[in-house]
């Protein structure tokens, strides 16, 4: 690893938010909203990537962490009149705490069992949303009052503010992922992914590292969930369904697991793929399914992972 490699990576990670910042002035309204949504969802995918990509744990329950953020912010606003800023902070804490609790149990298993346990916890959480349907309004969901969707006096429903807030969130998660990928903490996570037993025999408390990774991942996912509630004003159980555990997996696989920019690239590509397809067919699930199969069959490292392998070894 040369110093030049480090600089190139950092520059690239600054260039992408800068480009997104510039784009908002030229984009038509339709793509303006879309890109804001993509940035929020990409933050979710980036959070998922910390566990799936860097640590090598296949979770099928991340919708519960996205949902934890979504509902913490949404319910607090709806029933306690909590404003966006404190709601956002509380949502992140809730996500981290929830992920840590799930992790203490789920991380005692590994491989396929870990996937099933996370799936089961997420399913229980999803069902709980229905059980308390009087408050959560179940699948129908509820709309967060506009007067609470304000940040530093600016209305989050306003397109420019919304875009800028989404960009800020995205840049923040990018910075977190960049730091993880570059840090000695990230190196230990990668070591756990490669060979858990060897990592333990180098003196690392593997369980603790995984737990911290999962809590961090939960916090980032919850941040995205809270932002979704506040920026788009809608909170519903569909956003915490198993579908939303599978999407981040798809996005990360497409962009490239264990790459910093992969989750964004994958989310963007998949979003517009589905968007374009729905122009002439309603059968967009075909696309999602075929993309998943094609990715594992022909392209298991995703776009950036393949690029890193073939041409750009310095790519973080």
């Amino acid at each position: 690893m040369t110093a030049g490699g480090l600089d190139r990576a950092a520059l690239l990670h600054l260039a992408v938010p800068a480009l997104l910042f510039a784009l908002q002035f030229v984009l038509p309204d339709y793509h303006h909203v879309n890109l804001a949504r993509v940035m929020v969802l990409a933050s979710f995918a980036a959070g998922y990537n910390i566990v799936f990509g860097y640590t090598g744990l296949l979770s099928l329950g991340h919708a519960m962490f996205f949902g934890a953020g979504l509902y913490t912010a949404g319910l607090l606003a709806q029933y306690a009149g909590v404003a966006a800023a404190p709601g956002f902070v509380l949502a992140i804490l809730a996500g981290a705490l929830f992920a840590a609790l799930v992790g203490i149990l789920a991380l005692r298993t590994s491989g396929v069992s870990f996937m099933i346990v996370t799936l089961m916890f997420a399913q229980a959480a999803y069902l709980a949303l229905h059980y308390f349907g009087d408050y959560t309004r179940s699948d129908e969901g509820f709309v967060v009052p506009a007067e609470l969707r304000r940040l530093f006096g600016l209305a989050l429903a306003d397109p420019a503010t919304r875009y800028f807030t989404a960009l800020a969130l995205f840049t923040g998660t990018l910075a977190v992922c960049h730091a993880v990928a570059r840090s000695s903490f990230g190196r230990v996570l990668a070591a756990i992914r490669e060979n858990e037993e060897r990592t333990r025999m180098l003196g690392y408390d593997v369980f603790a590292y995984k737990l911290v990774a999962l809590a961090l991942s939960g916090a980032v996912s919850a941040a995205a969930g809270a932002a979704y509630a506040m920026l788009f004003g809608y909170v519903g159980a569909g956003l915490a369904s198993i579908q939303y555990s599978i999407y981040p997996l798809l996005w990360v696989l497409m962009g490239g697991a264990a790459t910093v920019l992969g989750p964004f690239l994958g989310t963007l590509a998949m979003f517009y793929l589905v968007d374009t397809a729905s122009g002439f067919t309603s059968a967009y699930l075909f696309l999602v399914g075929l993309a998943l199969i094609a990715l594992v069959l022909f392209f298991p490292k995703g776009v950036l992972g393949t690029l890193r392998e073939r041409a750009l070894p310095w790519l973080p």
Partner: peptide
């Protein structure tokens, strides 16, 4: 039992 996909230095 080394980490095959990391550099020797890492």
């Amino acid at each position: 039992s080394i980490f095959a996909r990391m550099t020797a230095l890492d």
